[in-house]
């Protein structure tokens, strides 16, 4: 049976991981390759590397980093951050990335999803959506959740699927950083209206929260950052805990 996926997410700036990382047995916690390898060995099912570089100079470092990651890591990984054209994606996939995620650029120019899907296949296009509740409506936001758009979460996710996205990565900005659990209701609704996999993101604070994302939220995968980086939740323990809860886990 297909298993639910656990996905650590690493923020990268100028070729280095950004958030403080508290990892034992690692020589250089700022090295994305070393940190990613450690997660792969611990049983992470996939990895996401998000480039939060502000300048083009820093972005160039990212492309060569992707090659280094692909060389050393033997599980699938997604890269994202600052992708706004087909020309941005080809070098990342050629360097060995398995998938790319698009966010703000797709909101500005939805046709980008069609172009990317046609050029590289739906399986490698992840549409990342940041949303928060505004007047009881799940509203899509850009710029790290700061800027509200006209788009509504469920319509936009469906449109993304129809345009050729292969997966939806949904981050609830209301839950992100709160460690109070994933946004279960919108996850369940996304699952009900979509025929492509949904990755839950935002709000993971302990291992029990993942049960909610998978059982009630019906998510296909769950992504988290700081709880893994700071060792608050360890992947091997999380996975054996979820197995005990009769959730299908590798």
């Amino acid at each position: 049976m297909l298993t639910k996926r656990i996905i650590p997410c690493l923020d990268i700036k100028d070729g280095r991981t950004v958030k403080g990382v508290n990892f034992v047995n690692i020589r250089d916690a700022g090295d994305p390759v070393e940190l990613g390898s450690a997660y792969a060995q611990q049983g992470a099912d996939e990895l996401v590397f998000l480039d939060i570089s502000a300048t083009n100079e820093e972005r160039k470092t990212f492309a060569s980093l992707v090659r280094d990651i692909a060389k050393h890591i033997n599980i699938p990984f997604t890269v994202g951050g600052g992708i706004s054209a087909v020309a941005d994606v080809a070098p990342l996939l050629e360097a060995g990335a398995d998938k790319v995620s698009v966010n703000s650029a797709a909101v500005r120019n939805p046709g980008l999803i069609d172009e990317l899907s046609k050029a590289f296949g739906a399986q490698c296009i992840v549409l990342a959506i940041d949303a928060r509740r505004v007047d009881d409506q799940w509203t899509v936001h850009t710029h790290g959740g700061k800027k509200a758009t006209e788009k509504k979460l469920f319509e936009w996710a469906k449109e993304g699927q129809d345009r050729g996205a292969g997966e939806i990565l949904f981050t609830s900005m209301d839950h992100d950083g709160t460690k109070s659990g994933f946004a279960i209701d919108p996850l369940a609704r996304l699952n009900a209206i979509l025929s492509i996999p949904v990755i839950a993101s935002g709000g993971a604070g302990n291992k029990e929260h993942f049960i909610g994302a998978f059982k009630e939220g019906k998510a296909d995968a769950a992504l988290a950052a700081s709880i893994f980086h700071f060792g608050e939740v360890k992947i091997p323990e999380l996975k054996s805990f979820l197995k005990q809860q009769a959730i299908h886990i590798r």
């Binding site: 049976m1 297909l2 298993t3 639910k4 996926r5 099912d45 739906a122 399986q123 292969g166 997966e167 699952n191 009900a192 979509l194 025929s195 492509i196 996999p197 019906k218 296909d220 995968a221 590798r250």
Partner: peptide, 16 residues
């Protein structure tokens, strides 16, 4: 051809 809502296509992930 999915026969239930939780059967997503593509088949993406780890299986046995």
């Amino acid at each position: 051809k999915p026969t239930a809502q939780d059967q997503k296509v593509p088949h993406m992930g780890w299986n046995q």
